[in-house]
Design a protein around this nucleic acid. Structure first.
Length: 567
RNA sequence: UGGGGAAUAGUGUAACGGCAGCACAAAUGACUCUGGAUCAUUUAGUCUAGGUUCAAAUCCUAGUUCCCCAGCCA
């Protein structure tokens, strides 16, 4: 290791695993798991955990299980189970035959609970939820023992059996661990192990009316699956002593829990509760709305698994609460899409460009490069004609400095077309809006070439008016207007930071004819605009494109900077 | 005035007592048939105060700030 001149740096989790392996802890065996609760859709924060757990297993030649922590039947649904499996697979990971559910272990957990009662380590408590809270004490004051704490083993056994048999209504009794009501760690103040819940479980149906708490389930589930390294988020650090206590009392295999900081992203909200609210209150169109940070939302937006995985690799992992700049995610996306997305021309805000000296009715097929980053992608033919659509933004009657586009007297290149010189425009006399831009072309510049070697600063994209295909384009922006959506005035909530312009629908964009046959989820780059992905709402002949991410726009920066000066 | 964690450029992350590095962002320039991509350059950091040491981001002491915990949620 000291001979290595380029030491590869490892994060603190891999370092712990390395130490364990060096010490021969599990004979080098590494087994992790991704343990979601099926009560919502997976988001980019989960992707971090998935990449960590499955990634570590791959790197160490180990295994990673998928296990649903389904101990609360009131919140969990198969819809979520299915979506989670789909998303993990889409991200590119495989749990093979190791799909588990905490509910698989309900019988074993029940037996262990009985065992703890018999050992005098657990008791049935008749306190109400409210009373339990009062007896628990506070952060600074110790709790008080429950009056039911010293029940005899036989009575506890009888009561617990009858809880299971359904003799008592919800909330009337709990099974609690007998630990220490004075512990400074509130999790150790006789935590509830089982509660009564007459609820239908998505897997076990009505077999049970008592359900184990997460804390009495999670550690043992890891133990049963022989998980060597149980990786979870920071908020469970306080629970580790409790998991360790159960494991020790039960005398079973002890996984090692390691906690890391969950992912936060600027302009984004990651809490499942709030994401659910956004969906329920109709602020977005669903869990897979392309503005959502959910995996399915990102997928629909046009993200690739590669981009997300690379992002997870780059953000690293530590125990520091942090907020990652969404720009990094977008960078990873562009980096991936730049290599793979075919280039096409599309005009979002069309205005007609008429080439006055171009023959009426003539159509030329111009050869265009599909992807300058990938020679193997080849070329295609794009029809060119006298009347084209160009971007509204690409013409200014009065142009600012450094404006390299169409303005009277200025020559620009029509990408893969011809060089044209702007001669003026026609305006709607009523509104003053530009309805037509006029120009003349230089026939010697076919294909956009300049045989005389002359340089033009600007190149703009276009679509033949005669051959254009109509398309809807959905232009997305951040869902929130502030880097921290939770940054709100007193008495208000994150909803005031919802971005009213997070979605702009462009019903009548003009795209080149090759796009007529685009298939759902196809990705492409609209030259000079950004990357786009075909939405599932598309109809034959009427494609719908989601803007995945813009291209970096230097001009917008230049212009934005000068914006204070003049219009 | 309980317990558990964490502090390194704007952001994220390295360093394991020996030259504070990388990525994103930002800025400048080169190049360009995408104001894209690419390339080059620049700006910018060890929470504070003491101490140990030839040498401290790293070890010690004291403080400061932030996060988590009082669900029969996970």
């Amino acid at each position: 290791m000291t001979t290595e001149n380029t030491p590869v740096s490892t994060d603190f989790i891999r370092e712990i695993i390395n130490e364990d392996n060096r010490a021969g802890k599990h004979n080098g065996r590494v087994h992790t798991r991704f343990p979601p609760e099926p009560n919502g859709y997976l988001h980019i924060g989960h992707a971090k955990s998935i990449c960590l757990n499955f990634g570590i297993a791959q790197e160490y030649g180990g295994l990673c299980n998928l296990r649903f922590d389904d101990t609360n039947p009131c919140k969990e649904e198969v819809e979520y189970v299915d979506s989670i499996m789909e998303d993990v697979r889409w991200l590119g990971f495989d749990w093979e035959d190791r799909l588990f559910y905490a509910s698989d272990y309900f019988d074993q957990l029940y037996d262990w609970a009985v065992q703890m009662i018999e050992a005098g380590k657990a008791y049935v408590c008749d306190l109400s939820a409210e009373q339990t809270r009062q007896f628990r004490g506070t952060l600074t004051e110790p709790g008080k023992n429950s009056p039911y704490r010293d029940r005899k083993v036989e009575e506890n056994l009888d009561l617990f059996t009858r809880m299971k048999a359904g003799e008592f209504p919800d909330g009337t009794r709990t099974l609690r661990a007998k630990i220490d009501m004075a512990s400074p760690n509130l999790n150790m103040r006789d935590p509830v192990m089982y509660r009564i819940l007459h609820a239908e479980h998505h897997r076990t149906g009505d077999k049970w009316c008592i359900y184990p708490m997460y804390d009495f389930t999670h550690g043992q589930s890891d133990s049963l699956e022989r998980i060597t390294h149980s990786i979870c988020t920071l908020e469970f650090e306080n629970h580790r002593p409790l998991y360790d206590w159960y494991i020790q009392e039960l005398g079973i295999f002890a996984p090692r829990q390691i906690e890391f900081a969950r992912l936060n992203l600027t302009y984004t909200m990651m809490s499942k509760r709030r994401l659910l609210e956004l969906v329920r209150d109709g602020h977005v169109a669903g869990w897979d709305d392309p503005r959502m940070p959910t995996i399915c939302g990102l997928r629909r937006r046009g993200y690739t698994p590669e981009a997300i995985r690379n992002f997870c690799k780059r953000i690293g992992v530590s125990k520091v609460d942090s907020v990652v700049d969404i720009a990094l995610l977008e960078h990873c996306l562009r980096e991936d899409l730049n290599k793979r997305a075919p280039r096409v021309m599309a005009v979002l805000k069309p205005v007609k460009l008429v080439i006055d000296n171009y023959p009426d009715g003539q159509i030329e097929e111009m050869e265009a490069i599909n992807n300058p980053e990938d020679a193997a992608a080849g070329t295609r033919l794009v029809p060119f004609s006298k009347v084209l659509y160009i971007e509204e933004d690409d013409f200014r009657e009065e142009a600012p400095k450094k404006y390299h586009r169409l303005t009277p007297g200025q020559e620009v290149r029509l990408r893969y077309g011809y060089l044209v010189t702007c001669t003026g425009c026609v305006k709607d006399p009523a509104t003053g809006a530009v309805v037509e831009v006029h120009c003349t072309y230089d026939p010697a510049t076919r294909g956009g070439n300049t045989p005389d070697g002359r340089k033009v600063k600007g190149t703009i994209h276009w679509v033949s008016a005669a051959k254009a295909v109509d398309a809807e384009v959905r232009v997305y922006d951040n869902l929130f207007t502030k880097p921290d959506p939770g940054d709100v005035p007193d008495g208000q909530d994150y909803r005031v930071n919802l971005n009213p312009k997070s979605l702009e629908i462009i019903p009548a964009a003009k795209v080149e004819p090759s796009l007529a046959s685009a298939k759902i989820n196809d990705k492409c780059q609209f030259e000079r605009l950004g990357y786009f992905s075909v939405d599932k709402d598309s109809q034959p002949g009427k494609p719908i494109f989601n803007r995945t991410v813009t291209l970096k726009d230097t001009w917008a920066k230049i212009e934005g900077r000068g914006a204070g000066g003049e219009g």
